[in-house]
Every structure is written in C-alpha cells, then in structure tokens.
Amino acid sequence: MANVNREHVFRFKQFEVRNRMSAMKVGTDGVLLGAWCHVAGCRRVLDIGAGTGLISLMIAQREPDAFIDAVEIERDAAAEARDNFDSSPWSDRLRVIEADFNRWAAGIDAPYDLIVSNPPYFNSELKAPDASRALA
C-alpha cells in the first residue's frame, strides 16, 4: 500500500526534487550519499540507476565543473529525473540517459572521474511490491 502521507517534492537550498512518478522515492540513504561522496575536481560523473536524479543534482550543486550522465532504466523515473534536471540551476550539466546500464555501458568512450550508485536493496526473502520497483 502506498504511503499517502509521503512528500512528493523535497526542497533543498538551491533545488527541488519531485518524486511522484519514480518507484524509488527520495530517502535518507540518497541524501547521505549525495552529501558524502567526494566530488572535488570531478569533471565527468556517472550516476547509475539515477531514479529521481537526487544524487546527480547534489553533485552538480557541489562541483560546478562537473558534467553528470544519469542512467536510468525505468521510464517514469527517467522522465522525472529529466524534469528535475530541467528545473534546476544546472540543467546544462545534467543529462538523463534512459537505458539499461548493462547495454549502454558497452558504448562508453571515455573514463569517468566518479561513478555513483544507490541501488535498492531487497534480500532474497523480500520481493519488490510492484513491477517498477522490481525493475529498479
């Protein structure tokens, strides 16, 4: 059952993240990873399984010279990340790639300075409650 009390927009100092469509919502783990990862001097960043784009946005805010590719397989999450990027102050440095990372990665032609990922965790006993979360 969906949490009807869950916020659909998270506001940070310089940007907002909408998370109405994405299967994986904004959570403490993503916020901590976005704040914790070392980004100083990173010019090319890859966010694997970007979801709403939260971590990409946090990196763009923290490192003004970073260009971020955000790969997301799930259509609704990719669309939401694209909307979040477009409404941010750093839209010119953020790119959503809607693709299966395993297929897309074969075409990488230059190294990244930083690769981040915040995958969902399901142990073998727990199953994702719906198809979009299972895909994530």
Rank of each mutant, 00 (worst) to 15 (best):
A60C: 07
E74L: 04
R82H: 11
R93S: 07
D113E: 12
I97M: 05
P119I: 09
R18E: 06
D69H: 11
A128M: 01
I48C: 03
R103P: 03
A35V: 00
G53C: 09
E16I: 09
N3R: 10
G107S: 13
E16S: 14
D100R: 12
L46E: 03
L57I: 08
R133K: 14
A99T: 04
F10Q: 09
R6D: 13
A70Q: 03
W104A: 07
D100V: 03
D109C: 13
E125G: 15
S117W: 03
I115S: 11
N5R: 13
D86S: 11
S124E: 13
V96Y: 02
V96L: 02
H38I: 03
S124H: 14
M24E: 13
G53I: 04
T52M: 08
G49K: 06
V17T: 07
Y121G: 06
S87F: 06
T52P: 09
W90T: 07
R62F: 01
N19Q: 15
A66I: 02
E74R: 05
A106R: 13
K25F: 04
R6K: 14
V31C: 11
L135D: 08
I97T: 09
D109E: 15
D130T: 13
A40V: 10
L57P: 10
A23G: 15
D47Q: 02
A35I: 01
R18H: 10
A105F: 11
Q61I: 00
E63L: 00
I108D: 05
A40R: 12
I97S: 02
N118C: 08
G41Y: 03
G107I: 06
Y112T: 06
R18P: 03
R95A: 05
A131S: 14
S22Q: 05
S88L: 06
Y121V: 11
I55A: 02
E125S: 14
G34F: 00
W104L: 04
V9I: 14
F12V: 06
M1P: 12
N84Q: 11
L32Q: 09
S124G: 14
L33N: 11
V45R: 00
P119E: 10
L114Q: 08
E7K: 15
A105Q: 12
A134I: 05
C42H: 04
C42G: 10
A110R: 15
V45F: 04
R93F: 01
P119M: 08
R11Y: 05
R20G: 02
T52F: 02
N19R: 01
N19P: 05
I97Q: 03
G51S: 08
I73H: 09
F15S: 04
M1V: 12
D113G: 07
A134P: 10
N84T: 08
A128Q: 11
P89V: 01
F67D: 05
S132G: 10
A40N: 13
V45M: 03
R82S: 13
L126I: 15
E80P: 09
N3L: 08
L57D: 05
R133F: 10
